[in-house]
Each structure stands twice: as structure tokens, then as C-alpha cells.
């Protein structure tokens, strides 16, 4: 316990790093994943902008990257990280890897949730003379908004989980803190403090997600 109090500044700094990584990952990965998901959804056969070439490419890319365990992915993607960010280690490098991994996962989740929109309402919009892009923006996404919010909530929690591995490339965060000061120095209290704070983050995220989705669904 004394050790934890001693480590107070490091603990809060690590918490800040986690929040920073998760927030920026959701911003970049969230936007990228959204576009990927829209692309997958719109280009599928019988979709609003059917294009089997684009659809196949997107599917192959996502299916290639998604099964890679993040702890391997973060290392494997390092050359690309260095090319884009300029450095291969540090918090920003971790955010790049996180965003990329999150985008592939989000792409699938967005696609799945958009597929829950009844084809009938899309047909109705078409019968009113609406074009495919307008239908995507004003019918498909609004109609799927509730499940989309829940999908994103699920991903935020997955990103909190993945961010714990950022320490591998010097990204910091609560996962690294628990490893360094808790596990390696035989201080279970320190480890559990990090665990508890992560649980609190997850609970808050889930609560906000549920609340937002309920507001949108009005149920």
C-alpha cells in the first residue's frame, strides 16, 4: 500500500496515457473503421453501390489483419508506423498501431450493424427518388444508430484492453504500469490498483454507451 502511495504520480500519469491513447484511437480508428464499414456495406452484392472488386479487396484486407493478435500486430506494423509517424516507439506510435487494428475491427462491426437496417426502408427511400449516398447518410446510418453506438461502446472497451499492450513499444499506460511496478516488483496491490481503475473506465464507458443508445432508440 505504501508503495502504491509512493507511485501516485506515475499511476495517474499512466491513467492519463491510457485515456489519451484510447481517445485518439477511437477518433482515428473510429473514423477509419466507419468508412471501411460503410464501404463493405455499400459495395456488397445487392447493396446500394454494388462493386464486387472493391468489396473483395476490403474483405481480404480485413480478414488478413483482424486475426493477428495485437501483441504481434503492434510489432509487425512497426515499419509502417515509422514511415507514417516518424518513430516506431512511444505513445503516438502505439496510437497508430491501435487505430489501425481498431479500424479493421470497427469496419466489421459497422458493416454488421448497418445490415440490420430493413431492406424495405431502403427500398422506400429509393421509391422516393433518393440516391445511394443520400440513402446511406440519411436513412441507413440514422436507422442503425442505436446498435452502432453499442458496437462502438464494445470497441472502446476492446481498445482499453489492447492499449494495455502499448508498453511493448514504450507507449506507457496502465497496462505497462501494472507490469512494471506491480508484476515485476511483486506488488499485487499496485497491480490491482491498475486493474480497478481499468474496471472503472470500462464501467463508465459501458454506462455512457448504454445511456446514449437508449436515448437514440427511445426504448
Amino acid at each position: 500500500m505504501d508503495r502504491l502511495l509512493e507511485l501516485g504520480p506515475e499511476f495517474w500519469a499512466a491513467a492519463g496515457e491510457t485515456l489519451y491513447m484510447v481517445a485518439l484511437t477511437m477518433l482515428f480508428g473510429g473514423a477509419g473503421g466507419f468508412l471501411l464499414g460503410i464501404g463493405l456495406y455499400a459495395t456488397r452484392r445487392g447493396g446500394l453501390l454494388p462493386n464486387s472488386v472493391v468489396n473483395n479487396v476490403l474483405n481480404v484486407v480485413i480478414n488478413f489483419f483482424r486475426p493477428i493478435p495485437f501483441i504481434i500486430f503492434i510489432a509487425a506494423v512497426q515499419p509502417l508506423t515509422r514511415a507514417v509517424i516518424g518513430v516506431g516507439i512511444g505513445t503516438d506510435a502505439a496510437i497508430f498501431a491501435l487505430s489501425l487494428a481498431a479500424a479493421f475491427a470497427i469496419g466489421r462491426i459497422v458493416e454488421q450493424n448497418l445490415l440490420t437496417v430493413r431492406p424495405g426502408v431502403i427500398e422506400a427511400a429509393r421509391s422516393m427518388g433518393a440516391g445511394p449516398l443520400r440513402i446511406l447518410g440519411t436513412v441507413v446510418v440514422p436507422e442503425a444508430l442505436g446498435p452502432l453506438i453499442l458496437g462502438y461502446t464494445f470497441i472502446v472497451i476492446a481498445v482499453i484492453d489492447m492499449s494495455a499492450m502499448a508498453g511493448l513499444i514504450g507507449g506507457g499506460g496502465l497496462g505497462y504500469f501494472a507490469q512494471l511496478y506491480g508484476f515485476r516488483q511483486f506488488e499485487p496491490v499496485v497491480t490491482w490498483a491498475a486493474v480497478l481503475l481499468i474496471v472503472v473506465f470500462v464501467q463508465v464507458v459501458q454506462y455512457v454507451g448504454n445511456w446514449l443508445a437508449r436515448r437514440v432508440l427511445r426504448r
Binding site: G120, E123, A124, R126, E143, L145
Partner: peptide
Amino acid sequence: IRLGIGMIFQQFELFEA
């Protein structure tokens, strides 16, 4: 052309949102 032709459906197909 479709703006000049209205359509209604068995399951109504209103925009729920």
C-alpha cells in the same frame, strides 16, 4: 421519374429513427 410515383408498402417501411 420516381418523384412522380408514390409507393406504399405492406410493412409501411417508415423511417423508425
